[in-house]
């Protein structure tokens, strides 16, 4: 499967017109990453968006006693989208479970696309803002659930769901 096909099958980019989709594919770089490779590290600034061409990536967060797995990503799924516009520290670690083929888009390349192709920039910002609305709603729900818990362990679990 080539990158344009991967993007076409991804939930985020399936609605993008062919011209913009091909332009995005031409800007991204496909590479093979070994098992255990950290694409994004919790606590460090992220600056790259990735889409998985083939393989699996696990998303984890550190807690006081262990590392909690919060998501498992497969072919055509993406991560790091928000780091394209946000310069803050990453709140999770993304690690290759086995060998992974992934396409990357660094923030500098995104900025060039942003200023040269309005339809593509518009599409990206709709996805980013939708993701952030989802994250805000999730966090609000987690805090509300935590407020109803009695012990610190139950609160911790509510905040990691």
């Amino acid at each position: 499967m080539n990158l344009s096909d991967v993007l076409r099958q991804s939930p985020e980019f399936s609605g993008l017109p062919t011209r913009e989709l091909d332009m995005l594919a031409d800007t991204m770089v496909v590479r093979d990453y070994p098992a255990g490779h950290h694409f994004i590290k919790e606590g460090r600034p992220g600056d790259t968006f990735y889409i998985i061409v083939e393989g699996q990536v696990v998303v984890t967060r550190k807690t006081a006693h262990h590392v909690a797995e919060i998501n498992h990503l497969k072919d055509c799924q993406s991560f790091g989208m928000i780091s394209l516009i946000d310069h803050g520290k990453s709140t999770a670690t993304c690690t290759a479970v086995g060998p992974v083929k992934a396409a990357s888009l660094p923030r500098t390349a995104f900025e060039m696309l942003y200023h040269s192709n309005i339809p593509l920039a518009n599409h990206f910002l709709h996805i980013v803002s939708r993701q952030l609305r989802h994250d805000m709603r999730n966090l609000a729900n987690q805090i509300r659930t935590a407020m109803t818990q009695d012990s610190s362990d139950e609160i911790k679990n509510a905040l990691l769901k």
Binding site: K62, T63, I82, D86, L159
Partner: peptide
């Protein structure tokens, strides 16, 4: 608007980190 929401998520998350970590 995305910057605005991202800043708020970060501000809230920073306050929750002591509870998680």
């Amino acid at each position: 608007l995305s910057h605005f929401m991202s800043d708020r998520i970060r501000a809230a998350t920073e306050l929750l980190l002591p509870l998680i970590e």
